[in-house]
Nucleic acid binder design. Sequence first.
DNA 1: CGGAATCCTCAATGATACTG
DNA 2: CAGTATCATTGAGGATTCCG
Lengths: 126, 126
Amino acid sequence: MQVSNPLREHFPDAVFPAGCPTRTVIDHVMSKWGLLVLLSLGEGEPLRWSELRRRAEGVSEKMLAQTLRTLVADGFVLRDARPVVPPHVEYSLSPRGQELAALLNPLMVWVADNAPDILEDAATAS
Amino acid sequence: MQVSNPLREHFPDAVFPAGCPTRTVIDHVMSKWGLLVLLSLGEGEPLRWSELRRRAEGVSEKMLAQTLRTLVADGFVLRDARPVVPPHVEYSLSPRGQELAALLNPLMVWVADNAPDILEDAATAS
DNA sequence: CGGAATCCTCAATGATACTG
DNA sequence: CAGTATCATTGAGGATTCCG
């Protein structure tokens, strides 16, 4: 009847206790730009800085730099800088990043499929 | 050899075009408190205001109210107010909310499992 | 090309107090 | 109990400029 709830086993009390490490990770991963970068790279091919700026439409240079630094530090994204001139830098998903992207993808597809209905409801709710 | 990428079919150009309705939905759903509320309700039982405040540890009254209003308007959350005194109000997931929570759950479990490793990397990256 | 460093703004958030 | 109203704050995020 009840599907067991794995999350409850993790967090019997609060969902994610305040100050819990998971909240930090969630902030990185579910942040507006973090998400878009992960999804962009999740398409398979490595991307360059300028390509990422195009795919994550609206991101400023500052936020892209900040986001990439975080994702690289967290081990989601690999940075491959070739010592040529002009500079050539490629970003791709690490294995860990690929695991994450694999979980993110169905969610985003669902959102994309349902967004129109959802916003229609929101509008009707006036 | 390449697994087809469903997201790419949705968004050939940018991942989620700026101003796209999907970005609004994502903002609601992936927001710090929106996420915690959805996960809390995703555990199955309906919850009352005060219970939600405890489960989504750290949320202020203002943010909880705002978050709930948004999630109700989007059709993710059902609000059941019984006309008794003192007031008794229960929140639960709508079918749409349950679909969403079902996708959110594996993601959060993965994050919870991996958060320690991830943050260790981030610390090492100093 | 791929960033880093500054400055600056405003909108999201929190604290507080009050109410049906 | 379940909120609303108001105000203060701060830090995320944008614009701009400059560098290897």
